[in-house]
Write a protein that binds this DNA or RNA. Structure first.
Lengths: 121, 121
DNA sequence: TTATATACATAAGATTTCTATGTATTAATT
DNA sequence: AATTAATACATAGAAATCTTATGTATATAA
């Protein structure tokens, strides 16, 4: 019988703000690191944000599959220590898409800062 | 007969990134301006972001109703030029919630910048 | 031997947002 | 005079995304 030991498998209080930013984060990390597999992405994000953002598997894997279906990512399956790994990397299309996404992110951050701190604008 | 003249009533290419930030934006604007009505909020955001972010009515009005139901906002209905206006302002609870939200927003922006620009971290 | 870490997956439900439509008044344009 | 645009609210259906929960499987640490 399978027993699920639910310790730290999920994010707990991820701010609503992160909604909509998952694919941008994934694409940026892949641009930076060449290729990564799903689990590695979750760990990397946790590390970068000092544990503040925990990407859930239920969000990540479907997102990766969608990006692959859209031709943004391509996958290489490997076997490491008898364990399956699916390495993802940006396609050519994905690379140019990432440039757009990062520009959008910069604009977004600028706009949010304008709203939060209208004096500086 | 009613004819809908659909010019500029909706946002067009709002980045996915804005998903999840609507209530934070609304709360911050109300903290800043004391009280505002829905239409005013849409115009203010358009102005602040120089037309880049256009809040849709289909998103805003349900969000305002929900925040009111949660006790974050309270409403004062007024009649101006034969037109209905519903002014919203933060409740006491809403004011303290806003402080939390803005802290979360700062963290979020910091984390997103860490991801985009890992060298500076 | 039990739990944790690694590594994938999907389905149900909740939530949010977009698109489209609806009503109504006033102001501007043609 | 008639039409369009602007002001001001509203809601319903669909789409998209994310959370929660569950499932399978191997390797390692306690």
């Amino acid at each position: 019988m399978y027993i699920c030991s639910d310790v730290n498998r999920f994010s707990m209080k991820n701010s609503q703000l992160y909604k909509g930013s998952l694919t941008t984060i994934v694409m940026k990390l892949l641009e930076e690191n060449g290729r990564m597999y799903g689990y590695e992405i979750t760990q990397k994000v946790k590390e970068i944000t000092k544990g503040e953002l925990k990407i859930t598997e239920g969000a990540l894997y479907p997102a990766l599959h969608k990006l692959e279906a859209e031709g943004v990512l391509e996958v290489e399956i490997e076997n490491v220590d008898n364990r399956l790994r699916k390495y993802y990397k940006l396609t050519e299309k994905g690379t140019s898409e990432t440039i757009n996404r990062l520009a959008e992110l910069e604009e977004f951050i600028k706009n949010m800062q304008s709203i939060v701190n209208p004096k500086l604008t």
